[in-house]
Design a protein around this nucleic acid. Structure first.
Length: 363
DNA sequence: TACTCGTGGAC
DNA sequence: TGTCCAAGAGT
């Protein structure tokens, strides 16, 4: 065991956070936590994790659940394909692996299980002596070894793996990996690292050469692309709201939403009116404008209210219509929805939304 | 490699 | 207030 390893483990023993997924050795629960934690802060995960494993205490329970129920518990966490892939993977585990965790390669091949997740779960739950390289470890490694390459590049990952290889605590790799991650999130933070309390400061090349503020090197993320989008709040004669469930694509797949269309022109309302309007749809005149920013696009939402004055279906609704539903102003609360539509529910006056708290309306 | 895929907290 | 970014995976 190297001095770095020794000091890091001692620091972790003293400073580690109490987290619900650290109170179990169940690989299923550790797996759930790792998937939830992808690109997501610990504080946002804790409650969701507890609710999730309470509803689905094991892989069999998750496998037999409806996708809608799974998405409902994931609601608000974002990156919803994680939930669908976890659900699919649980079904594969139950039906093709008799509910037992397969070997490392078998697990690595499950939907949503990449290199990091496989390494994290198998080091923590099974003691597999591998380094789990996440964003924290990349940042810590970049400073420890003064890596001059973009930490998001494949080269950086390879360099960190190589440089840390001999430091992995092979008799407790899971503890070692979590110690590195905790160090990254609590001490070796992106800006203004807290080197005073760092157990690795004694051998940190960035610290010893005064370069902690220059490292790591990381390219600027691409900016969200402004995107006009028309959102239709459609009521029937009884005041029910028309929602649809998204199918066939990655974005927000499986979630319920108001009908919307991204448009080429900045006048989203006019463009969609021509394409999707119908004689049975009557504008009420109520309109609002909201912005909502995803990781990769910025929606400029032109929200309009219509009344559907007919008993039929709208031309663009599929014949089966099983992915469309007329719901009461409180009925939406039982359906998984994306946060992007929170302001639209507020606009629609849907009950329950005021408890969440709102928000601007440029009218 | 570069892009898609959400959300909200920190500063 | 805008910017950054968090225990990534899939394509």
């Amino acid at each position: 065991m190297t001095e770095l390893t020794e000091r890091l483990l001692a620091w972790f023993q003293r400073h580690q956070r109490a987290l619900p997924w650290r109170e179990t050795a169940d690989p299923y629960r550790i797996w759930v936590s790792e998937v939830m934690l992808q690109q997501t802060r610990v504080e946002a995960v804790i409650l969701k994790y507890q609710q999730f494993v309470e509803s689905f205490p094991d892989a069999a329970a998750l496998a037999s659940a409806d996708e809608e129920e799974v998405l409902g518990l994931w609601q608000g966490l974002g990156y919803y394909s994680r939930a669908r892939r976890l659900h699919q993977a649980a079904q594969i585990l139950v039906h093709e692996h008799a509910g037992r965790f397969p070997d490392y390669q078998g697990f690595r091949g499950l939907p949503g299980v990449g290199e990091y997740t496989a390494d994290a779960v198998y080091s923590i739950a099974f003691g597999r002596p591998v380094l789990a390289v996440d964003g924290n470890v990349l940042r810590v490694g970049a400073r420890l070894f003064c890596l001059e390459v973009d930490i998001l590049s494949a080269r950086a990952k390879k360099a960190v793996r190589s440089a840390l290889h001999d430091h992995v605590a092979v008799n407790q790799p899971g503890v070692f990996n979590q110690a590195l991650m905790d160090l990254g999130s609590a001490v070796c933070v992106p800006r203004k690292p807290r080197c005073e309390g760092c157990p690795a400061a004694f051998c940190c090349e960035a610290k010893l050469t005064g370069r902690t503020d220059e490292l790591p090197i990381r390219g600027a993320p691409s900016r969200p692309r402004p995107t006009p989008v028309a959102v239709w709040v459609i009521r029937d004669r009884e005041g029910h709201l028309l929602l649809r469930r998204r199918r066939g694509g990655g974005f927000l797949q499986g979630l319920w939403e108001f009908p919307w269309w991204e448009t080429e022109s900045s006048d989203a309302a006019a463009e969609t009116e021509g394409a999707y309007g119908s004689g049975a749809l009557r504008l009420t005149g109520r309109q609002a404008f909201h912005e909502y920013t995803f990781s990769h696009k910025q929606w400029l939402m032109d929200i309009r209210e219509y009344v559907f004055d007919s008993d039929g279906e709208l031309p663009w609704m599929p014949k089966s219509a099983e992915d469309y539903a007329w719901v009461s102003e409180s009925g939406w609360a039982n359906l998984p929805t994306a946060t992007a539509f929170r302001s639209v529910f507020a606009f629609a006056g849907a009950s329950g939304i005021l408890a969440i708290g709102e928000e601007d309306d440029d009218g």
